[in-house]
Nucleic acid binder design. Sequence first.
RNA 1: GCCCAGGUAGUAUAGUUCGGUCUAGUAUAUGCGGCUGUCGCCCGCAGGACCCGGGUCCGAAUCCCGGCCUGGGCGCCA
Length: 439
Amino acid sequence: MDLDSIGDWVRTHYSSHLSSELDGEAVTLFGWVQDVRDLGGIRFVILQDREGTIQITIPKKRVAPAVLAKTDALQKRFSVGVKGNVKKTNMTPRGIEIIPTAFKVFNEASEQLPIDITGKTPANIEVRLDARPLDLTQPSSLATFKIQHIALDAIRSFLFAKDFIEIHSPRIIASATEGGAELFCVDYFGQKAYLAQSPQLYKEELMLSFEKVFEVGPFFRAEESHTRRHLSEFTSIDIEQAFSNADDVMNLLEKVIHHACVVVKEKCVVELSNLDYTIEVPTLPFKRLTYTKVLDDLKTQGITIPWGEDIHTEAYRVLGDIYPFFYFITDWPTSTKAFYIKPRDDNPEVCEGFDLMWRYIELVSGGTRISDKNQLIHRLVEKNLNPDSFKCHLQAYDYGMPPHAGWAIGLERLTMILTGKKNIREVTLYPRDRVRLTP
RNA sequence: GCCCAGGUAGUAUAGUUCGGUCUAGUAUAUGCGGCUGUCGCCCGCAGGACCCGGGUCCGAAUCCCGGCCUGGGCGCCA
């Protein structure tokens, strides 16, 4: 088939912007063939663009022969352009259709697509991910990532309005900084380096200068996790705020989450309906449960966890049934949290770290940070970390480190909550996990 | 790393219990033909599959062993 060039054609509308008010107007549309229904004397082409679909109606005896000829060989996913007139009609669900006056085919597509893009025969997740570029053209995939985009936009705007400065910390770092999670190794001009697991230390150092910072970006964990809520590469929304404690940043956090829910629910009506999902906007404030209270609750459900131990997955699932929405867990044993989380002044066994949970999923973790150098070194030693390898970081504590606190939201997990998707890979464009490195 | 389940056309599945009418069924997709208001269009025709290797048996999609791959759970995980 002869392919067309775009020439001087310029898009006038996305499919979703067409309405019966445009009846009779000439429009230029670009997109892809989603489906062709040929009834003999009349042909219907469903044109899809990123915003939705619109029907192109071709009554064979009444359109220009050139248009008819162009549409004779159309197949799914052909990239096309249409010039035509909007026509009001009661014969389509949208109440409008396009009668074409000119038609261009920019590119063809395989006859047999690896997944069914009309959604009649949904494919399994691994098949979808193998054909991810095509899978992402499906309306439900588009809706998922539109929701993620709107949520992130809402959060960014909220933080900007609160005077946070957006920063970019290094992804390539020199040492296994924090203990805990395994890091990926990279060869840095012959030197051993690592991919960052979080911006934690850098954003704390910036408390000396910028006071309120946030960062949105990818981080890496070389864990062997094999679950629906872990990735090797994930996106973190991190904030850090000077002259504050855990309570201050928890108050901010619940407003951020609430705002994201409200905005997505308001702006993504079509997308949520496409996903057949309803967002329940949470009421403020969120429940605040202490670690000790959680242990008591679990005991009534027959799960006994000795004080001081971490809460395991089975227990979280039970807890998620008791508290089915957002809730904080505070006052964790100091031993369960990272070295930089501040122990309480009145009881050092307990720290000012917190988690924000959604059902059984840990969505956010944060806390008041240690700002005293000696205490920080003391905690490093308690965690079996070598203070010498933190020399660069520790210098920041010689220049007037203010009291500060912060948190980190897992963007993919938040997107799961906002879309109802049960597998984190569905809400990640090109997920990286224990076994998947492509596409 | 441990445990469980599974691998059948492009996709999604039935069949595996208890080996034999399985020459492997269905839907959708694809190709060809037909149809002037479809919208999961419809109708007809066609092509298309038992993960790999070994074993048991007269006979294996089905049972056994090994491998590979996938999904799920646990653990790990600021």
